[in-house]
């Protein structure tokens, strides 16, 4: 298999909850490659979470087709598709099934009939991967939100999905929990053979993605690299998103006559560019 093979494909997908309801998604098409990190960003109600649920057959589109790893997503393929698509949801509490950490991580493996020996092995692996080895027997109400989400990620990873979807998985966490999750995810992406789809409304969380899909009013509004997106400030504000500090500072600098050529994604990049300019004068 070549590494740029399409892993997920949306072909002209439209979805609504009922015949009388407004369209949540309108004619959406996009692709996710193997081992790619794609971020979907959009304001609340832009249809971005619906995409995740369509991808593993929790919902089905009225129009268009969805393919995951070459299989069309439909009634008779959903259980195969769900093996390939792992999902972490928004509310840390409402996806924790087990009475302890290890029971919860095992849940997905038990559903798929993994032999016990293999479960124990994988349990160890994934708890290491998310840095929660010391919490095997901890009960969920003794964990912080961020820790619960790390367990949710571990549970999903345990069955080796091809794509991991984080559906606003950091929205209910405090800044520290949010940072933990993003670090965990970046670490996983670098070390495991898995594609990532992060759905968020926080522009800080797309910086490390390979590609960003911007959703607005149920449509794919833009597809670009984070760097390009950061430069489209007025557009971002217009669709209810925020402009990161570093992007608005870069813009203000340009307006005061500093010729910034490379749109900065973080503090280092901007400082580096300013330093180069400074040395030249």
């Amino acid at each position: 298999m070549s590494s740029n093979e399409k892993l997920v494909e949306f072909r002209n997908v439209s979805f609504r909850y009922g015949a009388e309801q407004p369209w949540v998604l309108k004619n959406c098409s996009f692709e996710i490659d193997r081992e790619e990190w794609v971020a979907i960003i959009g304001h609340n109600g832009s249809g971005k979470s619906t995409i995740a649920k369509l991808m593993n057959g929790l919902l089905f589109p009225q129009e268009g087709e969805i393919y995951v790893a070459g299989k069309k997503v439909q009634e008779d393929t959903i259980w195969d598709v769900r093996k390939d698509v792992g999902m972490v949801f928004q509310n840390p509490d409402n996806q924790f099934v087990g009475t302890t950490v290890q029971d919860d991580v095992a849940f997905g493996m038990e559903n798929r009939g993994f032999p016990r020996e293999e479960m124990l092995q994988r349990l160890d692996d994934v708890l290491h991967a998310v840095g929660m080895v010391d919490y095997r027997l901890t009960e969920p109400h003794r964990l912080s939100g961020g820790q619960k989400q790390r367990i949710a990620i571990a549970s999903v990873l345990a069955v080796s999905p091809k794509v991991l979807i984080l559906d606003e998985a950091t929205a209910m966490l405090d800044p520290r929990g949010r940072r933990d999750i993003m670090q965990t995810v970046a670490h996983l992406q670098a070390n495991k053979d898995v594609s990532l789809l992060t759905i968020t409304h926080d522009l800080q969380e797309i910086v490390q993605a390979d590609r960003v899909i911007v959703m607005n009013e149920g449509q794919v509004w833009d597809e670009s690299h984070p760097r390009e997106l950061f430069s489209k400030q007025d557009d971002l504000l217009a669709i209810g998103l925020d402009v990161p500090f570093i992007a608005s500072l870069a813009k203000a600098l340009k307006q005061t006559g500093i010729p910034i050529t490379k749109e900065p994604l973080n503090h280092e990049e901007l400082l580096e560019e300013l330093w180069t300019l400074h040395s030249r004068t």
Binding site: F245, S248, L249, K251, A252, L253, Q255, T256, G257, I258, L274, L277, H278, T281
Partner: peptide, 16 residues
């Protein structure tokens, strides 16, 4: 951000 940019520009334009 605007005020910060102005201050930074002043430093940069003011040379070393």
């Amino acid at each position: 951000e605007r005020e910060l940019a102005t201050a930074i520009t002043a430093v940069l334009k003011g040379g070393k």
